[in-house]
């Protein structure tokens, strides 16, 4: 269970998050939606340890994460698919996946995890030897997700998965994520600009605006709420 309580985050003197609290239960898919610059990626990067909180706390399965560096947060079971995918372009697909299994616990299991990931994304198996920079955008996103799963996480953070991908690929990816969530009881926290997509994947959702959580609830009811319709779907 991921529990974020009353965090404030700054870029230098500029406050980006105000008193943000949210909760993701074990095995749940929760999404955070909001417009550009609302603070979605800031929150993601803070959980992953790339940004520090000035106040408040972040806990995962009862362990405080908010003062740890990014690489040790992976060891506590949280793995992130970063915005823009950020695969290692000069390394092969297989080496990229191996990098995902860098922590000790995951290294021992890596052959087994690798097989599971090739089952989910067969194209990665076919292109194992190919340089990752030569993959298409959709394949790179699959690789980024696969790499994040290689560390055998208990919680997965996904930042802007749909960015720059065709609707067909996005549909396929969201199906895969839902099935991984069911099969492994994986806790998933998704940040997404594509609000209908995010709310169709998730169980629950939060709405962020100007660095503050302004709404939350069941994904279906959020999708129907007048406010969301007006702000993000343009169908008031």
């Amino acid at each position: 269970m991921l529990k974020i309580a009353h965090i404030d985050v700054y870029y230098g003197d500029l406050q980006a998050l105000w008193d943000v609290s949210l909760m993701v239960e074990e095995g749940e898919i929760v999404t955070l939606v909001g417009s550009n610059g609302a603070g979605k990626s800031t929150l993601m990067n803070t959980i992953a340890g790339l940004l520090k909180v000035r106040a408040g706390s972040i806990e995962f399965h009862g362990i405080r994460l908010d003062s740890l560096p990014a690489h040790s947060i992976v060891e506590h079971g949280i793995s992130m698919v970063p915005e823009g995918r950020r695969i290692f372009p000069q390394m092969s697909v297989l080496e990229n996946l191996e990098m995902g299994a860098s922590i000790h616990a995951a290294r021992k299991m890596r052959q087994k995890t690798l097989k599971e990931i090739y089952e989910v994304f067969p194209i990665l198996g076919e292109r194992a030897k190919q340089r990752a920079g030569t993959l298409s955008g959709g394949e790179q996103q699959m690789l980024a997700i696969g790499r994040a799963l290689m560390s055998q996480p208990k919680g997965l953070l996904i930042d802007e998965m749909s960015l720059g991908l065709s609707p067909l690929v996005v549909q396929e990816l969201s199906r895969v994520i839902q099935s991984i969530n069911k099969a492994n009881n994986l806790t998933i926290f998704v940040v997404e600009q594509d609000v209908p997509l995010a709310l169709s994947m998730a169980h629950r959702g939060y709405v962020i605006e100007n660095g503050r959580i302004i709404d939350q609830g069941d994904a279906k009811s959020l999708l129907c709420s007048a406010r969301i319709k007006e702000a993000y779907l343009g169908t008031a």
Partner: peptide, 17 residues
């Protein structure tokens, strides 16, 4: 491989642990 990964993208490398 960690050396190569860290140089290609230090942030992504730290996210890999």
């Amino acid at each position: 491989k960690h050396i190569r990964a860290a140089t290609q993208d230090a942030v992504a490398a730290s996210l890999c642990g």
